[in-house]
Design a protein around this nucleic acid. Structure first.
Lengths: 276, 276
DNA sequence: ATTGACATTATAGTAGGTATAACCCTTATA
DNA sequence: TATAAGGGTTATACCTACTATAATGTCAAT
């Protein structure tokens, strides 16, 4: 019966000696034989079977403790139900990582847009794709207040996302709505905040925002929003366009600068139009 | 200017007070103002912007340290390249989780097969799907040796998988090949071990094992493999079948039992046949 | 004055290791 | 014979991102 030292065992299983000692200490995987004089660990080559199993269960995502318990019980049904639980966990993680992936893409695009965005205040026409929004009503008209109230509304939105089990990742693409009628009558009353969610299938009960031509103006200052919105309105009038939907103030990027702790924002103010 | 206590700040951002204190201690996010007498932290509502950003970058997968560095530099290009790096990381993680998911399924199925497998030694005909294998040649004929040499071959296979950058998850479905000619002449010489990989697209250079009818026998004892293989051969002769490919000894499950540290295996011995 | 809800600090625990120091043992080489 | 290399041992600290606990201080209202 040939015995392996800890170094040999480690080498042949692609594991570190420290890790093998750790496994020994926590009672997960102990050497077959231990020399009483020098305390050396000696492993039996047949122990590889168990170590393989440990490494396998570990790479499947089980914790060392779970593995220890399972291997101690040696009950196939228990292991199976644990694996089934783990399958759900893994599915969840995959779903979450896909959202992460999506959010990263979106952020990179936002930064590009930030760098290349038209000059602050320039009115342009853009064709925007169909989007979906998750919206809440705060029953406070933020146009009557300053940024504090706006922040407060965002906190409420954040809470609401959490409660609706929507990933906070979407919080990076928020905004406010001024309903069409109010916009047309220059009645700045808006109590609604939202986040854009790019895939309807992710969550039910999302509202669609139609694709189409939007008259847009980019704005870097929270305080200037109302003025720019009015300019947007004037432009619509001058060109003889027709407003066919709600006015939206969308947050494109939101880079907080270190020293001042304020939002370093880029908004895209937008209103859908037709050529009459 | 209204100030928020740590409790209010925590509550409105869905974060614990301890975490906010931690962020303060590591210099990631400190309160706007601190009362000198009682040491209370007071946050400005505008600081939400930075906290949002921190939470966002965190949920995108960045570490607190990375976030701290990025927010301190406030350089858009740096953040972008970090995000691009993170995107690759996330893609990797997704890929890995999908493999995990697959392996879990496979293991659950193996356990089912283990419970429902035909009695040890019974010869049956199965139609097996096309499979792919990653194979190495060890230049040792394991039929001449015992389980120690077999274990050693498996270690080599494990190393090889690692070197070829193939997930060790596949290690759970390993086996040995006895080439057709050797099997037919009852010449038990096999130096090859392999793992089955169920998707060819995952790795290039995989060999296909054709689908078809396989004469199979399940076996729970490593020592009995050769005898069962001979029985398989006799059966082929008796029925007048024709052997049309290599004989494979596939490991279905490999449950190491606690006390004895040996492999508790289920093999499926299989040889592809035609009805002449 | 006391109560209850706040706040503070320091310390330790979590998982799954890695890294380090200080030490022992054996063998080969100068 | 000294010593260096290469194994082995232990204990401890470090890592991340928190959470939990204890011991203590503060605030507002009854």
């Amino acid at each position: 019966m040939q015995h392996l030292t800890i170094g040999e065992m480690a080498e042949s299983n692609n594991i570190s000696k420290q890790t093998l000692r750790l496994y020994d200490n926590i009672g997960l995987f102990s050497p077959d034989y231990r020399n009483d004089e020098n305390g050396y660990r000696y492993y039996d080559i047949k122990q590889n079977a168990r170590l393989d199993m440990i490494q396998y269960l570990k790479s499947i995502g089980l914790t060392l403790n779970e593995i220890k318990i399972q291997l101690a019980s040696d009950n196939l049904d228990k292991i199976t139900s644990l694996l089934e639980k783990q399958r759900l966990t893994v599915d969840d993680e995959i779903k979450n990582l896909k959202l992460q992936r999506r959010a990263i893409d979106k952020t990179i695009k936002s930064f590009e847009l930030y760098k290349d965005s038209p000059p602050d205040g320039m009115i342009i026409l853009e064709h925007l794709p169909r989007r979906y929004m998750y919206r809440i009503n705060t029953s406070v008209n933020f146009y009557n207040f300053g940024i504090e109230v706006y922040e407060d509304m965002l906190r409420k939105l954040k809470h609401s996302l959490l409660k609706s089990n929507i990933s906070p990742l979407f919080f990076c693409n928020a905004g406010t709505i001024l309903r069409k009628d109010n916009f047309i009558s220059k009645n700045f009353v808006s109590t609604e905040v939202f986040v854009f969610i790019d895939d309807k299938t992710l969550f039910p009960k999302l509202e669609a925002v139609p694709s189409g031509n939007y008259l847009c103006v980019y704005c870097e200052d929270f305080e200037k929003e109302k003025d720019y919105a009015l300019e947007l309105f004037d432009h619509v009038e001058k060109r003889g366009f027709k407003i066919i939907g709600d006015y939206i103030c969308e947050v494109i990027t939101d880079l907080p600068v270190v020293e001042t702790n304020h939002r370093g924002m880029l908004f895209r103010l937008q209103v859908p139009i037709s050529y009459k």
